[in-house]
Design a binder for these strands. Sequence first.
DNA 1: TCCACCATGTAACTGGTTACATGATTAC
DNA 2: GTAATCATGTAACCAGTTACATGGTGGA
Lengths: 198, 198
Amino acid sequence: MKVPPISVLGYALLGLIDLKPSSGYDLRKIFAETAMGNYSSSPGAIYPVLERLDSQRLIRGVVEHSAGLRRRRLYHTTPTGAAELRKWLSKPVAQSDVMRGAHELMLRFAFMDHALGVDAAINFLQEFRAALRPYLSSLESYARENAQQMRLSGRLALESGIRGYRGMYDWTAYAIRAYHQSLTSQPMRPSQIAKGDL
Amino acid sequence: MKVPPISVLGYALLGLIDLKPSSGYDLRKIFAETAMGNYSSSPGAIYPVLERLDSQRLIRGVVEHSAGLRRRRLYHTTPTGAAELRKWLSKPVAQSDVMRGAHELMLRFAFMDHALGVDAAINFLQEFRAALRPYLSSLESYARENAQQMRLSGRLALESGIRGYRGMYDWTAYAIRAYHQSLTSQPMRPSQIAKGDL
DNA sequence: TCCACCATGTAACTGGTTACATGATTAC
DNA sequence: GTAATCATGTAACCAGTTACATGGTGGA
């Protein structure tokens, strides 16, 4: 089953549609209005990707004729699409993903416990943490070695990057704690376990 | 003087060359080995951009025949190029830049006190800080309003983003302090003021 | 009636990726 | 002599941007 490569935007759309069946317009709004603002939101980006995912049968769009003639294509994931999403989410955390800013890793994590469950999410966090540590210390030793020959603004910009990664590193510990807490002291309500839950 | 738009990568190269005359290979190494790993580093990205900057006379490449026949094109900025760089660095901090992850803003800041001086850098930090605050609070209120209907991984991913921006916000204060300190208690040595200083 | 918003589409362009190709130099 | 690294280039491809186009719907 050779699926031609899916872009990050493609996975973002696939993941969102898997969370909740949506139209192209819905998805554009999400990118435009919520914290996912780093993604496209332009029709020229989203509609072609949706068509492509549809032609590969990873999602399917059904036209709603709810009120009047106004058409609205509601997409939902197919079993193949959901499987493809899980495959992407299951990839090991690569060092290169971390170096590129970890944006894609965060996107994957956001979909994780819906598509793969809590155990996978915790495991992902541990992998993420393990990948972050060596990169962080390489940045720190780079800074130590080059700080004196850099101008203040360069030094500070580098330090901002290091702070960002250290923050992520701390966040992984916090997130792991949050999962353990949700498993022990705060048992899930049935509605949170049920499949139909948004 | 209508200069066709320069990409972020183009500005990154222009800024680096302005800091220190470099060859394409030097620049590739910087992207591959230092903390600027989020940029390309592939020859297919860098050489065409260098050619374009050269054809616009923003940089000029002179071939070094240092030892033997091996050619190495050392680029340096022209006055026009340096002016173009300063123009980019002088743009006000836009809200949209912040939303896109502030990567470009950090790049600009890294070049700032070499190309525009300390006062401009401090001013930039203040603008940056001012732009960060409302975005941070919009993220926070979004999180407050939507947390209960989100899954844990989504909630945590959002929180990671917020932490990142809060970290940047704190960093701006730290950076401003660092500038004031360098101006008062730690007067610069002449070598740090001299133009030839890397 | 007219504006704002819902909703989808598409055509032209462009910047960057991947992958390949070439040749010089240095170190072993 | 051969492997690693220095150093530059280029050709094919593709994803995403910009900008434009179309038409439905609801409210003032």
